[in-house]
C-alpha cells in the first residue's frame, strides 16, 4: 500500500494542567481517501487535529505526514502539507482583505509576485469567491467567509485538507454548495463533524474517537447503521435519517 498521508502511532497526550485527552490513537489516512472523524463533545477531536500539523506534540507515540516525522525541523513542511480549516472563519480570516488572507500562507512559504497572485486567484476560483478578492472579510456572509477560509488553506496546496465542523452554522443551501465544492477537490480530506449525514455524503470511511482512543473504524454507512455502536459512543442520527437507504460511496481513485 502507498505511504499514508497521515500516520498516527500510539499517540497519547496530556495538557499541562494534567488533563489527559488522548490515550494511544492509531490512525492511517491514505492518499485520495476521504475520512470522517466522528465523536461526541469532549472526545478529543480538536486535540487530535492539532497534532496533525505539529501545534501539539504527542507525549507518547509518533505522528508522520507522508513519511515525514513531525519534529521542530520538519514542522514548516508539515504545515504546508496539512491544511487545517478551523471552525470559526473569523478566527481563520485575520487579514484586511480576502486577497491578503489567501496570500498569507503561500507568502509565508516564500512565494511572491505573479506566482503568488496566480495561487490566490486559483484558490479563490475553486471555492467560487474570486470576485470578492478585494473585500474585507467581515463584509462577507458567513457561508462566504467559510469558503474563503477553505481557499486560504487550499492556496498552500496541501496534501490533506482537515476541516473542523465545516457545515456548522450554515443554511441548507450554503451547506449543499460547500459539499459540492468539497466533492470537486482532488485532495485527501479528513472531515471532523457532528453532522452525520454530511459525513455519509462526503466520506467513504469513518473513524469514531471516544474517550481519547479510536473506538470504531469502518465504511461510513456501516458505522452509522450499527445502532448499538452508535449509542455506545453517544452518536445519534437526525430524526428520519436512514443510512441503509444510501448508496455506498466508492473510494475515489486518485
Amino acid at each position: 500500500m502507498s505511504v499514508p498521508v497521515i500516520e498516527l502511532k500510539g499517540v497519547a497526550f496530556a495538557y499541562p494542567d494534567g488533563h489527559q485527552a488522548l490515550f494511544g490513537v492509531e490512525l492511517h489516512i491514505h492518499p485520495g481517501e476521504r475520512v470522517a472523524l466522528l465523536g461526541p463533545n469532549g472526545a478529543g477531536k480538536t486535540t487530535l487535529i492539532l497534532h496533525l500539523n505539529g501545534i501539539l506534540r504527542p507525549g507518547l507515540g509518533s505522528v508522520t505526514v507522508s513519511g515525514l516525522p513531525v519534529t521542530d525541523a520538519t514542522v514548516g513542511e508539515v504545515r504546508r502539507r496539512v491544511g487545517i480549516v478551523f471552525q470559526d472563519p473569523d478566527d481563520q480570516l485575520f487579514m484586511p482583505t480576502v486577497r491578503d488572507d489567501v496570500a498569507f500562507g503561500p507568502a509565508n512559504l516564500g512565494l511572491s509576485g505573479p506566482e503568488l497572485d496566480a495561487r490566490v486567484q486559483s484558490a479563490l476560483e475553486v471555492v467560487g469567491m474570486s470576485e470578492f478578492a478585494d473585500r474585507p472579510p467581515h463584509h462577507l456572509s458567513f457561508g462566504q467567509r467559510r469558503r474563503v477560509a477553505i481557499a486560504t488553506v487550499l492556496a498552500m496546496e496541501p496534501e490533506i485538507l482537515v476541516l473542523d465542523e465545516p457545515s456548522s452554522n450554515l443554511d441548507p443551501t450554503s451547506r449543499r454548495e460547500l459539499a459540492e465544492i468539497l466533492e470537486s477537490l482532488p485532495v485527501t480530506i479528513l472531515l471532523v463533524t457532528h453532522d452525520l449525514p454530511y459525513a455519509a455524503q462526503l466520506c467513504e470511511r469513518a473513524v469514531v474517537l471516544h474517550d481519547g482512543v479510536i473506538a470504531v473504524e469502518g465504511p461510513t454507512i456501516e458505522v452509522l447503521s450499527d445502532a448499538e455502536t452508535m449509542a455506545r459512543h453517544r452518536l445519534e442520527l437526525p430524526y428520519g435519517f436512514d443510512p441503509s437507504t444510501l448508496p455506498t460511496r466508492a473510494r475515489p481513485t486518485s
Binding site: 514548516g76 491544511g83 481563520q92 485575520f94 491578503d100 496570500a103 509565508n108
Partner: peptide, 22 residues
C-alpha cells in the same frame, strides 16, 4: 481566547512573526 485561536490559525499557515503584506 479568540486571540489564541487566531494565533493557532496563523501558526498553522506558517506564521513566523512577520505579516507578509503587499
Amino acid at each position: 481566547e479568540r486571540g489564541e485561536r487566531v494565533h493557532l490559525a496563523m501558526v498553522s499557515r506558517g506564521y513566523t512573526g512577520r505579516m507578509p503584506m503587499q
